[in-house]
């Protein structure tokens, strides 16, 4: 189970929509509280269902958001490369995430709106440095062009999968946000299961950036 966090207006919902529906909707209703999306992906031949919670960015919803950290195995921490303040707030988001989630939660830092290169306000190197400093995975994405969106989600899933294999996650404890499906993974899970489909989806959009 993932959770997407970040300031309001950075494109969290668009990222989710791009990932689950493969489309970009410039105008959509703002997120109130928490919304939800899901998609099956294939990692290492394992069919995995990613259940993604898309949270509202505004401060007043933080308490709601916090309730969802607990069950999350991964988090996408999103900022907007055209707005420095969203980058500046990363620290508080990170603190929140670390404080309310399990220590093993995989956090991926995402600089969204990479298509707006001309309005860039946060350098790629800064994002990389921040990620290095805090032990996060980093990527720049564009929900508009779909650039790196797949990779962002799937790389996070891979990282979680790797941690599972290393035994860092207790897959029997659902509080970790991981659930092993019966035979085929059918619910909120990142875990081993019989893979029956090809992994053609993975990386279908890769390399665009």
């Amino acid at each position: 189970m993932y959770i997407i966090i970040g300031d309001t207006g950075v494109g969290k919902s668009c990222l989710l929509l791009q990932f689950t529906d493969k489309r970009f909707q410039p105008v959509h209703d703002l997120t109130i509280g928490v919304e939800f999306g899901a998609r099956m992906v294939n990692i290492d031949g394992k069919q995995i269902k990613l259940q993604i919670w898309d949270t509202a960015g505004q401060e007043s919803f933080r308490s709601i958001t916090r309730s969802y950290y607990r069950g999350a195995a991964g988090a996408l921490l999103v900022y907007d490369i055209t707005r420095r303040e969203t980058f500046n707030h990363l620290t508080s988001w990170l603190e929140d995430a670390r404080q309310h989630s399990s220590s093993n939660m995989v956090i991926m830092l995402i600089g969204n709106k990479s298509d707006l290169e001309s309005r860039r306000d946060v350098k790629r190197e800064e994002g990389e440095a921040f990620a290095r400093e805090h032990g996060l995975i980093f990527m720049e994405t564009s929900a508009k062009t779909a650039c790196n969106v797949e990779e962002a989600f799937i790389n996070t899933a891979k990282e979680i999968y790797r941690k599972i294999q290393q035994g860092l996650f207790d897959v029997h404890n659902e509080a970790n946000g991981i659930k092993i499906g019966p035979q085929q993974c059918i619910s909120t899970s990142v875990g081993p299961s019989a893979s029956q489909r090809s992994s053609s989806e993975i990386g279908s959009n890769s390399g665009c950036c």
């Binding site: 309001t8 207006g9 105008v27 959509h28 209703d29 703002l30 505004q58």
Partner: peptide, 12 residues
Amino acid sequence: FTVDKDVVRTDR
């Protein structure tokens, strides 16, 4: 800032 962002995302 938030209002500006939100009004264009409301009931479109």
